[in-house]
Design a protein around this nucleic acid. Structure first.
Length: 481
RNA sequence: GUCCCCAUCGUCUAGUGGUAAGGACUCAGGAUUUUCAAUCCUGCAACGGGGGUUCGACUCCCCCUGGGGACGCCA
């Protein structure tokens, strides 16, 4: 019956994996998983100017970090390789010959300068900025002369005079008048294919069933459809997903801050949260739920529920969602992800149990892992400095002094402290001093951390340990009395 | 300039001819709490404009406006 689904993510290695591309990859992956199909990675490195091997590696690792495993690709192989376009040049050349022989494509000797003038003139006249076909009617002799002069030709596709209709899984039916499509170059004079051409040849040869990509490609699609028809290839399904915009409703770009996946990784966003969030840009669950596991996304994903309109990337919501994932994580799972941030901050990491306790103490306060550095600072101080004026005033209060002395007396009487003994001690302090509530707890908090806000005190005390607690309180007593 | 697409709270969205236009983020207020946070509750906030069609339009059609994309020997 239906062919097995095969989809591809086809980035060009010209930079880091961008948020928009990542979203495209995610939807491809979700659809493949949803249909038990294959997810294929193809590297479109046909631009020698901009493509770089290091970016290919970067794309691999970004995709891996997101947890999007591919079934076929340059590194893992597959039956439809090679999966890098730069290694398929002979294939494209072969198919170009077919078009040339059938008279469906022709050589073009126009220079970039000529083309630029042509374009300007067309726009001035109010016409569409298409190629005027001046090389279409070159006689064999004229072609021979130019080639004898050493001129190299690009190959242009001769666009047939018929309107093109496409049926898109998300955009539904769109038609393009034939005269809005100009004869486009399929092979550059260096013998390297252009995007529209290579994509068609590859998608056909790789038996891609669904082309899922950003909707900035819709106007490319009629060209590609024409190519499929010229070759007699079966046309795949198309699904053009809406763009992701910045807050100014312009296409998301570097100007908008962090736009590549590795930047989010570096700040301690969780891949699951990113996938969840990006999936919800222009797609929604029928249930209305927003926090959706990968499994659930896979199960529910459907093009019928993809929106038609572009979506603004909302940082605040991402932060909320990521924070939600952090809060829902088991603290143990967070140890490894958090360690790089500890190392970066110069905090010791050899005692994993201590790291775990710190995570438990601050887990609910952070939206992304990088923020743990600031919250955990209080656990690695040698001495306490009180910056805040309100805190200084509080510490000086008479009740605070009483609390300190009482607390210190209790502390000196024991040799080890944990959350429970701390609570017990505080009860005693309360009884002895008659101080309670904020006046009781706040001096201790400030004395131990220097700050007015922070994690729950019992956790702080246990993490600091008896010696450090005693030292800090002794210091503050000396300083302020 | 030409072609294509889009249009519900500030943002992400639900909606599919008859709804008090629902949810989420943000924001405000409250509850809880030894602080902050988290959590829970409450609240503010939207169908771009104009014509049709219809007994009835957020929903269908047209125009306008606004936005986006494409028109590369980039992808």
């Amino acid at each position: 019956m239906n062919k097995d689904v095969r989809v591809r993510f086809a980035p060009s290695p010209t930079g880091h994996l961008h948020i928009g591309n990542a979203r495209t990859a995610i939807l491809n992956w979700l659809f493949a998983k949803h249909t038990s199909g294959k997810f294929i990675l193809r590297i479109e490195d046909t631009d020698p100017e901009r493509s770089k091997e290091e970016y290919t590696e970067q794309i691999y690792s970004d995709l891996q970090w997101l947890g999007l495993a591919w079934d076929e690709g340059p590194d893992v192989g597959g039956d439809y390789g090679p999966y890098k376009q730069s290694e398929r040049l002979d294939i494209y050349a072969r198919y170009t010959m077919i078009l040339l022989e059938k008279g469906l494509a022709y050589k073009c000797f126009c220079t970039p300068e000529e083309l630029e003038i042509m374009r300007k003139e067309a726009i001035e006249k109010g016409l569409s900025a298409n190629y005027d076909r001046r090389c279409l009617h070159l006689s064999p002799e004229e072609i021979a002369t130019r080639e004898a002069q050493g001129l190299q030709a690009a190959i242009r596709f001769k666009v047939p005079e018929k309107d093109v209709v496409m049926n898109d899984l998300v955009k539904k039916q769109i038609s393009f008048p034939y005269d809005s499509i100009g004869d486009f170059v399929i092979m550059r004079k260096e013998g390297i294919p252009t995007y529209n051409y290579a994509a068609v040849v590859d998608d056909h040869l790789m038996e891609i069933t669904h082309v899922i990509r950003g909707d900035d490609h819709v106007s490319n699609t009629p060209k590609q459809i024409l190519l499929y028809e010229a070759f007699g290839f079966e046309i795949p399904e198309f699904a053009h997903i809406p763009m992701i915009l910045g807050p100014d409703r312009l296409r998301l770009s570097k100007r908008h801050g962090a736009t590549s996946i590795d930047e989010y990784q570096a700040r301690g966003y969780l891949p699951e949260a990113l996938i969840n969030f990006l999936s919800l840009l222009s797609w929604s669950s029928e249930s209305g739920a927003e926090i959706l596991s990968k499994e659930r996304l896979i199960q529910e994903f459907d093009f019928n529920r993809v929106t038609q309109s572009a979506a603004v990337f909302n940082h605040e919501k991402l932060n909320w969602m990521n924070g939600s994932y952090i809060r829902e994580s088991r603290p143990e799972e967070l140890i490894d992800p958090v360690i790089p941030f500890f190392i970066k901050a110069g905090y010791p990491v050899d005692d994993r149990d201590r790291v775990l306790k710190i995570i438990k103490a601050v887990q609910e306060k952070i939206d992304y892992l990088e923020q743990i550095i600031d919250h955990a600072k209080i656990f690695f101080q040698d001495s306490i400095t009180i910056e805040d004026a309100e805190a200084r005033a509080l510490v000086r209060k008479e009740t605070s002094q009483k609390v300190f002395w009482s607390f210190l007396r209790e502390l000196r009487a024991i040799d080890h402290i944990d959350m429970d003994t701390f609570r017990l001690i505080m009860k005693t302090v309360q009884k002895e001093t008659g101080v309670m509530g904020k006046d009781l707890w706040m001096p201790i908090r400030i004395g131990l951390t220097g700050r007015i806000h922070g994690p729950e005190l019992p956790m702080i005390v246990e993490l600091l340990g008896k010696q450090t607690c005693q030292k800090f309180i002794e210091e503050i007593v000396n300083r302020f009395s």
